[in-house]
Amino acid sequence: MDREFSYTQAHFEQVQAKLYELAGIQLDTSKDALVYSRLVRRIRSLKVGGFANYFVYLQNTPSETQEFINALTTNLTSFFREPHHFDILKGYLQDHPGNLRIWCVASSTGEEAYSIAMTVAEHYGQFDTPVEIIASDIDTDVLTAASAGIYKRERIESIVPQRRKQFFQRGTGGQDGKVRVVPELKRMVEFAQINLLEPSWPIRSTVDVIFCRNVMIYFDKQTQLALLTRLVALLPSDGLYIAGHSENFSAFAQVVRLAGQTTYYPVRG
């Protein structure tokens, strides 16, 4: 296949190594075409002439590090994705009245975090609740979109009408075809940029519920164990770690034990 810029196996391996170094993400060899399509946009935009020059630019320009990460991270999400998890959250809220903290670890463009907020608001029957919701991502572009809380109308078609009416405003004029999260719901969520590989996170203990869904699949086993151990350490003994449908932590029985469908309790002692 003819390509605009020379792109070799060595270039792909260099991208693999750099992304692993910066974010702990292990790119499968099947992602070589995706890497080209994502990074060629940066190469064109920067007018650096090719992959070799881009790597030099990346090395010498600290601000490009985040652009590199943003270009290569995958953000697949939807409102109330894996709905059984939100039923589990409802049960946890019923069993644990009072002040709680929830961390949505990979919030992407915000659908998961706002689904958590809607579940909390419905449980309390109001937007003013004793539950703090932190939502983070490594990708600053998706965090900007999440903070705006504006979506194409078709993104909320799967949400039941009562929720659409209560939690979203329909756009008019130039915003026709879009919806916006109501301000009261938006205020329930605090968005922050966090790289899980950082030696410390701006998250104070304790966190009662952690949503970390379909994140670990991008890391190797060693990194998975290290991150899972750090995350679970933030939970109380009856806290919940909610994983994604593609994740199974049976190999880490010393860290977590199964509580329900892709839901775990921390192991202590």
Rank of each mutant, 00 (worst) to 15 (best):
Q193Y: 02
A121Q: 02
G149T: 00
G98S: 06
D141H: 13
W201Q: 08
G171M: 06
I210T: 08
H96K: 14
M216A: 06
I159P: 08
S107F: 03
P161V: 03
T109P: 08
D141C: 10
V131L: 13
R170G: 08
E190K: 09
R213M: 08
E157C: 09
A145E: 10
P97Y: 03
L143M: 01
D208V: 05
R230H: 00
F127I: 11
Y218E: 11
W201C: 04
V181G: 04
P183F: 00
R164V: 00
I159H: 12
H96L: 05
L196P: 07
R230D: 05
N195W: 12
V207P: 04
T144H: 15
A121T: 00
A226R: 13
L196D: 13
V189D: 01
L196G: 10
G177C: 04
F168H: 06
I138E: 15
S158M: 10
L197S: 11
I156K: 02
V182Y: 02
L100G: 01
D176A: 10
I150F: 08
P202I: 11
R101C: 14
L228K: 01
G98H: 05
I138R: 14
A192N: 13
D139A: 11
L143F: 02
I150Y: 07
V160E: 13
I217G: 13
P161L: 00
F211D: 04
A113D: 04
F219Y: 13
Q193K: 12
G173I: 00
F168M: 10
G171Y: 04
Q222T: 13
P202R: 10
P130R: 12
V209T: 01
G177M: 04
T129I: 07
E112D: 05
Q193C: 14
G125L: 12
A106S: 13
M188N: 12
E198D: 14
I203M: 11
L100C: 02
V105Q: 07
L143V: 06
T119I: 12
T144A: 15
R164I: 03
D141V: 13
V105W: 00
M118R: 01
L185S: 02
G171P: 03
P161Q: 09
P130E: 15
E184P: 01
S108Q: 10
G149N: 01
D139G: 05
Q166E: 12
T223W: 01
D176R: 10
Q166G: 01
L197V: 09
A226Y: 09
K178F: 14
G174P: 05
M216F: 14
Y124I: 11
G177F: 03
T140A: 15
L225T: 13
V105A: 15
A135K: 01
